[in-house]
């Protein structure tokens, strides 16, 4: 029996070894190395000759936090987090509620259609939208003209470029949370609605007092996951605007990419990565605190 135990234990380690080894070597180790790098002045010269690298302590962090370019990028990123996130959630919730209605025919068809953008390749659809936003030939301005709205140079004007990217991001992502929310709606017991109806509750009151509270934990979880995703916006501005016009769509991730892989300021770029990570961690911790509070 004892040898059986030992056989099982060694098998256990052998079975997890490839995956856990890869994760340790190529996921966790780089994070630790990244933190060390963020404390150094590692740059283009250091790639040729690592011996020139010096420790600079918190110097990179100081520079990040006093860099106007970083604060602008953070503002743009937070715009995606706090405007794009909620808008996407609203679209998800709206479409989930519509599809949950018993009267709806062809539910599977609509669900598939709304979900389709989620699986598409971001680079490809960002390109499509880039053409759709064209101020002369684009379909978006053409349709807006039916409602008497003057043409907008969506991606060419610093005042609208972020909105242009944000609309693409909402279109691309809302189907994902919609699916999760539909499952959440289906798990609400029908009796709760019956009881509310007997008490004379109207549609809005049923939504307010039955649907929302039952969906609460799911909404919270999905909402925070969505916001965390928005912290990482990169490909959209890269493909649609390259951060322009006038640097109005540079996100933190795009800034990190430019600093790291265009200018090879690895120390500085890693400091940017860790500041972003800290912000995401704080968001997650707030979510966990709220989630604990929302449990009965």
């Amino acid at each position: 029996m004892r040898s059986d135990r030992r056989r099982e234990a060694s098998a256990g380690w052998m079975f997890i070894a490839p995956a856990v080894g890869l994760i340790a070597a190529f996921y966790l180790l780089p994070v630790l190395a990244g933190f060390v790098l963020s404390l150094t002045d590692f740059d283009l010269y250091a790639i040729g000759d690592p011996s020139v690298v010096r420790m600079v302590g918190a110097g990179n962090y100081q520079r990040v936090l006093t860099d106007a370019g970083f604060w602008a990028a953070l503002r743009h990123t937070l715009f995606f987090v706090f405007v794009g996130g909620p808008l996407s959630m609203l679209a998800s919730l709206g479409s989930a509620l519509l599809l949950h209605e018993k009267l709806v025919r062809g539910r599977a068809f609509f669900r598939t259609v709304y979900f389709a953008p989620v699986v598409t390749t971001l680079v490809a659809v960002a390109l499509v939208w880039r053409y759709l936003y064209h101020p002369t030939y684009g379909l978006v301005d053409h349709v807006l003209a039916w409602f008497g709205i003057a043409p907008i140079d969506w991606l060419g004007d610093p005042r609208s470029a972020l909105w242009g990217i944000l609309i693409l991001a909402v279109w691309k992502s809302f189907g994902y949370n919609m699916l999760i929310l539909i499952a959440g709606l289906q798990s609400i017991p029908e009796e709760l609605y019956e009881a509310a109806r007997l008490d004379g509750a109207g549609a809005w009151q049923r939504f307010r007092h039955v649907t929302l509270p039952s969906l609460g934990p799911t909404l919270l979880f999905v909402g925070v996951m969505t916001m965390l995703g928005q912290f990482q916006v990169f490909a959209e501005p890269y493909v649609m605007t390259q951060g322009g016009p006038l640097r109005s769509t540079v996100t933190v991730m795009l800034l990190m990419y430019e600093q790291g892989f265009r200018w090879w300021r690895m120390g500085y770029a890693n400091a940017i990565a860790f500041v972003l990570f800290a912000l995401m961690l704080i968001t997650t911790l707030i979510q966990m605190r709220l989630q604990r509070g929302s449990r009965p």
């Binding site: 180790l29 780089p30 994070v31 190395a33 790639i47 990169f234 990190m256 790291g260 690895m266």
Partner: peptide
């Protein structure tokens, strides 16, 4: 080990991207 993995889920992959590139180099 499992708990460590689950805790590591909060780390976005991009945080380690630059050092990972240097490692692959």
């Amino acid at each position: 080990v499992f708990r460590t993995l689950v805790a590591a889920l909060v780390i976005p992959a991009q945080v380690g991207m630059l050092p990972l590139f240097l490692m692959l180099q």
